[in-house]
């Protein structure tokens, strides 16, 4: 049967997790976790609620050089933050389509990535912005790029007695622009069939974060700058970039359609990014 714990400091969280011997599950928004708990009410899970932990980083902290998200940052927090919208439009756009309004009021950004769904909405955006994840456990803290965080569907490098303490996004360089595109089965609230976050730099290099087309959210980047005005060049670059996608068929879509849609969405995201107004870097 499920158990519930509400530790009040980080150290206690780590201890509770390790006592749970692999059955510990972090609870913040609960919007994915409780769906699973309902299906398996008899599993001996220990739900570790982080909402009373006093020494967590604040939900959203904006500094000169970076933005830091703590475990309690919700999608609604992100969606409503105008500072974020200017710097990380793809992330904010993604946060606005996670579930319904009521879900976004609960769902946490860090929970969304820890869930490690290949179709998670925020991961592609976080990937293109070079997010770094700080994980805390018995051995202390370690920080890794988000691109190394995902291992497979539902799997991360986060150990059973570790948890993600924060996610840091460096402020984008001058002239960096980004956008998010997503395809769903219906127009109202839905899980993504395919999602793409695209970033373009002032020099014309393209970065793509791809959702729902591989075992994990994927990150891919052009080796050389592309002339963003040149439709064919962009098309070529995108085609090459999405080569890393290995979509499968599932309930939401067939493989072939996914494969084709990743190209369409990537093209659209790149051109939307290119057309958008760039961000100002940290030095200005």
């Amino acid at each position: 049967m499920t158990q519930y714990r509400r530790p009040d400091n980080v150290e206690d969280v780590v201890r509770t997790l390790s006592d749970a011997e692999g059955n510990g599950r972090l609870l913040v928004g609960g919007t994915d976790l409780l769906v699973a708990v309902r299906r398996r009410p008899l599993d001996p899970l220990v739900l570790v609620d982080l909402k009373a932990v006093a020494d967590l980083p604040p939900a959203i902290e904006v500094t000169e050089a970076a933005v830091r998200f703590g475990p309690t940052a919700t999608m609604s927090d992100l969606a409503a933050d105008s500072r974020l919208a200017a710097m990380f439009p793809a992330l904010v756009a993604a946060s606005r389509v996670v579930g319904s309004l009521a879900i976004r009021n609960r769902a946490s950004l860090i929970g969304n990535i820890c869930n490690a769904s290949p179709a998670g909405d925020t991961a592609p955006a976080l990937l293109i912005y070079g997010a770094r994840v700080t994980i805390v456990g018995r051995a202390g803290e370690r920080t890794i790029p988000l691109s190394q965080f995902f291992v497979g569907p539902g799997l991360t490098t986060c150990g059973p007695d570790e948890f993600v303490l924060r996610v840091d996004l460096p402020r984008p360089a001058d002239g960096y622009r980004s956008a998010f595109e997503r395809l769903t089965r219906r127009r109202g609230v839905d899980l993504a069939t395919v999602s793409v976050a695209a970033g373009v730099s002032a020099e014309g290099s393209i970065t793509l974060g791809l959702g729902a087309v591989g075992p994990t959210p994927l990150l891919t980047e052009t080796a050389a700058a592309v002339d963003l005005e040149d439709v064919d060049a962009v098309e070529q670059a995108v085609k090459q970039l999405i080569g890393i996608a290995t979509p499968i068929s599932d309930l939401r879509s067939g493989r072939e359609y996914r494969q084709a849609m990743i190209a369409v969405l990537a093209r659209r995201a790149v051109s939307a990014a290119a057309r958008s107004v760039g961000t100002k870097g940290p030095s200005t």
Binding site: V35, R185, R186, R187, G188, V189, D190, L191, L251, R252
Partner: peptide, 16 residues
């Protein structure tokens, strides 16, 4: 039934 439940059985919403 593979789409057993509201998560993967889609019905029209306000936006549809």
């Amino acid at each position: 039934i593979q789409n057993l439940g509201a998560l993967d059985y889609r019905i029209p919403t306000f936006n549809d």
